[in-house]
Design a protein around this nucleic acid. Structure first.
Lengths: 342, 342
DNA sequence: CTGAAAGCGCTTACAG
DNA sequence: CTGAAAGCGCTTACAG
């Protein structure tokens, strides 16, 4: 018989080779040697042997014992655009500092896929999960995580049927104000809106929108609003009603850049010139569609910061299972002026 | 004392609740019930109980026993551009079909980061690794994987000091031919080149370039060539020499789109008009820099297909540790004509 | 510091 | 099918 393949160096071998007890070696390796008042000399020796033998701790075994894998699942939509990169970097920065590893997965904007990824993370016994929810996913999708008491932090937004959750997201109030002031500065007075109803925060953003309109003394008529009813579909017909209005708005605020880009496209199809006839500005600047977004005035979402907040929150929840529902809101209002507002 | 947190349902509980032996339950759950000639009735019962209890197998425990985690580490540069998305989708498609899970990590074009990610995958006992090597990384970086006999498949290219490896990459010969024929069709005769020396395949691409030049009866003078000596740095000075040449080339082929984009920029800085004075065309169309790449004629790299090949190869290597060094080359020559060739 | 021991949740031969 | 058992590699309390 050949020797068993993949036979790795174990802590027992390190102990034996060092001439110490297994417990001693284990304490040295896990960096808690002081607890046992182990001499510096012994520590050095064990460390040297571990290095020489190429010892690499088995996280599986560790996880079995401690009940902690030190892994946090991260479910993204996909790896398009800068959004994902910044989000990951922010998340990783914080997890790293606390000895946790992100386990990155991707739902590709597919509900079934998202459910599968969640199942995988559950089997892998991730200690917690950070998820950018798929736009049509509902509470049911995350139920398995809740049932197993795996802390879930929602990144950016929450399905609206999950009223209480751990959330790290953008505080859009300052951004909304900045956006509307920018439009007002361009002479706009009559402000319409375009957005997607699916998420809780999208709805809250609408409220922020109407409140800010009022504060700034601008006009808003709900009949100028356009709401997407389906997830990813395109909406070339959106601007049809707007184009036909005698008293149409002079500008449109988009609750996210995706709907802003689609509105931009739709306005043109229906013969409206941007920015001459109508201006468009969006919350969020994730640049999914590149050429188009180069034309859309928008406010950058502080993705990296939200990533950090999300990671910090999931770690808190891992440490304290009793942590109540929490919303961490990051404000930022970094305006990028482009063609769509002239 | 509170009950221990995170206490999950175990196979023993499923067995007990089903009134069968633990071994029986284990066989049913792992889908090998026939081996023990377990009755359909028992199978149904155990499955029903498992479902009712919300049993989720512990992959850690499984991995401990079998020596296989069913996890394949995937190390990408980052999640910018379409490249990553397509690569992941291709990889996942194949891994999924074989019961493996991709463990996605990102080196962010940082050598130290790449080494850390590798260490993490080693601790997690990934069964194999697919890596898009960081451009300046050398053999040393992957040594820990080799030492532990973890199969490594290089995606797209290999550091040049690793002569023998498992590789899934693009067969650029047909693409090169297509690109040069396209340039010839635009009246080009004198072809220069720009590229990065760091990788093995970049070097091979040069050979393919010169051979194809010869086959097509085109001209090439090595003094027209530009080689990047450093990784990610920008090279605004690149075109200086070219602009000054009395007998300069009428077109430049880039060995990847990044160097093509930089050359495009550099040519303009030095007063050359593209495509009037000089044309540029690239191998690879990963669209990292968006606005710029909208101008660069290029041939798409078959990233999704390479992903599939890479995944298939790593699975073979996991099954057969004796698998000799292998190169899986995918050919594709999907030309996208843009401004840079007029 | 040592040494023996229990136990994490599972797989897997083995005798019945 | 059952039942008892070994073992994967580790952590962790415990008596010395």
């Amino acid at each position: 018989m050949p020797t068993k393949r993949n036979r790795r160096v174990t802590i027992s071998q390190v102990a034996e080779e060092s001439g110490v007890a297994r417990a001693t070696a284990a304490f040295v390796i896990s960096g808690r040697a002081e607890q046992l008042r182990i001499s510096q000399q012994t520590i050095k020796r064990v460390q040297a042997v571990a290095k020489r033998l190429g010892y690499i701790p088995n996280q599986l075994a560790r996880g079995m014992i401690t009940g902690r894998t030190q892994v946090v699942g991260v479910i993204l939509g996909g790896v398009w655009g800068k959004f994902g990169q910044y989000a990951i970097e922010g998340i990783r920065e914080v997890l790293d500092a606390h000895g946790y590893t992100p386990f990155l997965t991707i739902h590709s904007w597919d509900e079934a896929r998202e459910a599968r990824e969640i199942d995988t993370l559950l089997r892998m016994r991730a200690d917690g999960v950070i998820v950018m929810p798929q736009i049509t996913s509902r509470k049911e999708c995350y139920e398995p995580l809740f049932k197993q008491h795996v802390p879930v932090v929602f990144f950016g937004d929450v399905p609206f049927d999950i009223p209480e959750a751990l959330v790290a997201a953008w505080d859009v109030r300052p951004a909304m104000r900045r956006l509307l002031e920018h439009l007002a500065g361009r002479g706009c007075r009559r402000i319409g809106l375009v957005g997607e109803r699916f998420f809780k925060f999208s709805r809250q953003r609408y409220q922020v929108f109407t409140e800010t309109i009022r504060e700034l003394g601008l006009e808003h008529d709900p009949k100028w609003d356009t709401w997407a009813e389906v997830g990813d579909a395109e909406h070339p017909e959106w601007a049809q009603a707007i184009a036909a209005m005698p008293d149409r708005p002079d500008s449109i605020v988009a609750l996210n850049d995706n709907s802003g880009l689609q509105m931009l496209d739709s306005l043109r199809r229906h013969g409206l010139r941007v920015p001459e006839d109508i201006r468009v500005a969006a919350l969020g600047d994730t640049i999914e569609t590149v050429e188009a977004s180069a034309q859309l005035t928008a406010i950058r979402e502080p993705v990296r910061e939200i990533g950090r907040a999300a990671a910090a929150l999931v770690l808190e929840a891992i440490r304290n299972p009793e942590l109540p529902p929490t919303e961490r809101l990051i404000d930022a209002a970094d305006l990028v002026v482009r063609m769509s507002t002239g």
